[in-house]
C-alpha cells in the first residue's frame, strides 16, 4: 500500500494546487492536522466544536476537494479507510484529478465519496456513495459510479480524455 496522506486538500479552481499532510508521530488526531492546514490559510478558522468530518465539510465548501484518512487504527498499514469530500460543481480538471486519485486509492478497503454538501444555519447535510473492497469489487469503483450517475459519458470531454 502506498503511503497515504492523513489529509489532502486540492483546489477546485486550480487542481495543481494540492496540500498533503502525511502522518506524523507528534500529531495525535485529525484536529491537529487541521490546525496545521488552518495556519497556512488564515482566512479560515478552526471551530473546535466541530467534529473532524464537519471540519472537512467546511473546507470542502470553500471550493476544495478533501481526502481524509479515517482508518480506525492509526498504525494500520493495510485495509485502510477514507473519505473524499467533493466541492459543489467540481471543475473538469478536478474530476480528472479524481480519476488520478483513484489509482492511488485502489487498495483502500473502504471509501466514502461525499457530494452535494449543503450548509445551513451552521450545520451540514450531504449525500454519499460508499464503496467496500469485497467479493472482487474495489472500493474505488464508487468513483466510476458517481461519474456515471452525474456526468454523461458521451458529452463530457474529460471522460473521453480519461478513458
Amino acid at each position: 500500500m502506498r503511503k497515504l496522506p492523513k489529509l489532502l486538500v486540492i483546489s477546485n479552481l486550480d487542481s495543481w494546487h494540492a496540500e498533503a499532510f502525511y502522518p506524523q508521530n507528534n500529531l495525535r488526531n485529525h484536529k491537529e492536522y487541521w490546525e496545521l492546514y488552518m495556519k497556512r490559510h488564515p482566512n479560515l478558522c478552526l471551530d473546535y466544536n466541530q467534529s473532524k468530518t464537519e471540519t472537512a465539510l467546511m473546507v470542502a465548501s470553500t471550493q476544495k476537494l478533501v481526502w481524509m484518512d479515517i482508518s480506525s487504527n492509526p498504525q494500520q498499514e493495510t485495509h485502510k479507510s477514507g473519505i473524499l469530500f467533493l466541492p459543489k460543481n467540481p471543475s473538469d480538471s478536478l474530476l480528472s484529478t479524481l480519476f488520478l486519485l483513484k489509482d492511488c486509492l485502489q487498495e483502500l478497503a473502504f471509501l466514502e465519496l461525499v457530494y452535494n454538501i449543503i450548509e445551513k444555519d451552521g450545520t451540514y447535510r450531504y449525500q454519499s456513495m460508499i464503496g467496500i473492497s469485497q467479493k472482487g469489487k474495489k472500493s474505488t469503483d464508487v468513483i466510476d459510479l458517481f461519474y456515471e450517475k452525474y456526468y454523461s459519458k458521451e458529452s463530457h470531454p474529460i471522460k473521453q480524455k480519461i478513458s
Binding site: N49, T53, V114, Q127, S128, M129, V142
Partner: peptide, 22 residues
C-alpha cells in the same frame, strides 16, 4: 453527545448510498 452524525442508508441499490445530517 454534543454532536451526532445521522446517516440514513439505502441498501437496495447496487451500491450503498447515504444521506447524512448532524
Amino acid at each position: 453527545f454534543r454532536d451526532i452524525e445521522v446517516k440514513k442508508f439505502t441498501t437496495q441499490e447496487p451500491n450503498i448510498h447515504a444521506a447524512t445530517e448532524f
